[in-house]
Simulated assay, not measured.
Amino acid sequence: MKKYLVGLLTIAMTALILVGCSNNASASDKTLNVGILQIVPHGSLDAARKGFKSELNKEVKAHDKSIKINYNYQNAQGDQSNLNSMAQQLTQKKNDLILGIATPSAQALAKKTKTTPIVVTAVTNLKSAGLVKNDEKPATNVTGTKDLGPVDKQLKLLKSLTKNNKPIGVMYNSSEENSVLQVKMVKKYAKNHNLKLNIVSVTSTNDVASAVSGMADKVSGIYLPTDNLMASSMKTIGKKAQAAKLPVVTGSIEMAEDGGTATYGINYNDLGKQTAKMAYQILINKKKPQNMAVETSHTLRLYVNKNNAKALGIKPDKIQKP
């Protein structure tokens, strides 16, 4: 009888342990851990991050209200050593997925892990950045959205705002791969349309004001690609250009909001939301980044900074989509 009771007790305890394990597994399945690495704080990248979080929260909640998302957000403040150590931290922790915002962040993460799913946004060209084999089928643990805007249309827009035949000014950071790629596109467009350029490269925020002042009398307007340094310096650029009565067309809407005149381009909040939908497919539907095609922005919009346009003597309602 004792043996029988002991046997029953053993079975009961084993069952309780198994139930407990089952409950623990269930509880852990109800929490998603998402890391986020951002190279520097500025309007465009911040908007992408906020769009990503809001859309992912919405999508997951619609799927299952009981699922919680823990975000681990790291910002390198433009420092490469910070970026590398933060990438190390995020890849060592058991994140279900990591978001890399901008090319340097994406590259830092991709170097640290080949297994954790990575989605990226605000990257101009994933293939040239060494993140994927090709856009159609990445064949790596990385996929995401590109922020390459319609450079040709943006230059056409700028030309429509200029009032003389002086060259178009172009300012960018030569140490950013994404900017170098866009400037190559600018040069190609200029060659095909007999457009003269005055190209200036800066690598520090300390040089931005003097660079704008230096080109003020030599150009008819300024074009800025989607460049992290330029985006971080938009208020300075906007003030200097406005004082010189120069229209500024930017690579993104957020840059134009912060000091440009107009753009026909990407809204980074929308791009972040688009990236979140890809993350949802990985986290909930168990899709693999290796097989998920890289996406470009679904929407392009004309944005006019009315205050800036008026200060330059340009009627905002006269600015048309290129």
Rank of each mutant, 00 (worst) to 15 (best):
K2W: 05
T10S: 11
I11T: 05
S22I: 01
N24V: 13
Q38D: 02
P41Q: 12
D46C: 01
A48G: 08
A48W: 05
K50E: 15
S54Q: 15
N57Q: 13
N70G: 06
N75F: 07
A76R: 07
N82V: 00
K94S: 15
L97S: 08
P104Y: 12
A110K: 14
A110V: 03
T121C: 15
L126W: 09
A129D: 10
E136S: 13
T140V: 03
N141G: 10
T143G: 02
K146R: 15
D147A: 09
K153L: 00
L155H: 02
L157I: 04
L158Y: 06
K163C: 04
V170Q: 04
Q182H: 12
V183D: 09
K184V: 01
K184C: 03
K191G: 07
K196V: 00
N206K: 15
G214D: 10
A216V: 06
G221V: 08
I222F: 01
N228H: 06
L229T: 05
M230F: 03
A231N: 06
M234N: 04
Q242G: 12
Q242H: 09
T250L: 03
G260C: 03
T261A: 04
A262Q: 06
Y268E: 14
A276L: 06
A276D: 05
K286P: 02
A293L: 03
S297H: 07
L302G: 09
Y303C: 12
V304L: 07
N308E: 11
G313E: 14
K315I: 13
P316Q: 14
K321P: 01
